[in-house]
Amino acid sequence: MDFLDALAIMVSSALVFAAPLIFTAIGGVFSERSGIINIGLEGLMVMGAFVGIVFNLTFSDMFGSMTPWISMLAAMVLSAIFALVHAVASITFRADQVVSGVAINFLALGVGLFLTREFYDRGQTDIISNPFYTWDVPFLSDIPVLGRMFFENYPSTYLAIAVALLGWFVLFKTSFGLRLRAVGEHPMAADTNGIKVYRMRYIAVMISGAMGGLGGAAYALTVAQAFSQATIVGQGFMSLAAVIFGKWHPLGALGAAIFFGFAQAISINGASWPLFANIPQVFLLILPYALTILALAGFIGRAEAPKSLGTPYIKGSR
């Protein structure tokens, strides 16, 4: 295999693994920017993957080739509703946000596997017949080398990158985004200025649910193609790492997610690629997590969290 071939395959499979992380990390950015820690991203992805697969299996005859898209939509809506559990607990009931997130992770896996057993009588679903297929972008995919790297990927991958750009625009170029960030930095000041703190936080958490759902479904409908206990194992936490490594910025999270996607792609396929055959797999597996710790410790630029991240807002208190 010549070098350019290897590189093209490597970049394109890195993007495949990155797409679910991008969706979820963008959701994480929204939630955390509003001041709500979301350890539950993993659970939201589980929910998205579960809904995406079940929907796809059930309705593939009805919707034909549109099935994966409608599955994504269903995963997005149901995960957003599921995220309400986290919102109610951590915003209205003032539960510890980390603990509530941990509970979300348990709950999603419990519900997903319970229903899988109910629907299919065993611990995993069948393999879907209507997954996403790679789609060559017209004209652009004809560019030598670059075309194969970037423009022969799954539609969900292109969507993920578009969502990241949209997320940046919403968060930094609209008044909605400004309000959302204000709520996460100084909720009392925001409240004084007439911004509804609880409502903004509810919306942010539901956005993170919707994005986590898209992320889980994107993984399930491209890579996994079935749902079981082993479908989502750590991608949610890796997305959380991408949020922090990307310094709570949508574009930073996008970059971090692509980088982590690389690490994942290499750790899975690396042995067959000439460049990486000699690096022990364990280093590549550990890399994203070690880098996140270094980033937090300030060795790779200081990562500053939103000011009021993790503290419930109690109206009227000082």
Binding site: A89, V99, V102, A103, I104, F106, L107, L109, G110, V111
Partner: peptide, 11 residues
């Protein structure tokens, strides 16, 4: 079912 119950107890 028990995982759901435990998650709810935590919540």
């Amino acid at each position: 079912l028990v995982d759901i119950v435990i998650a709810l107890i935590i919540l």
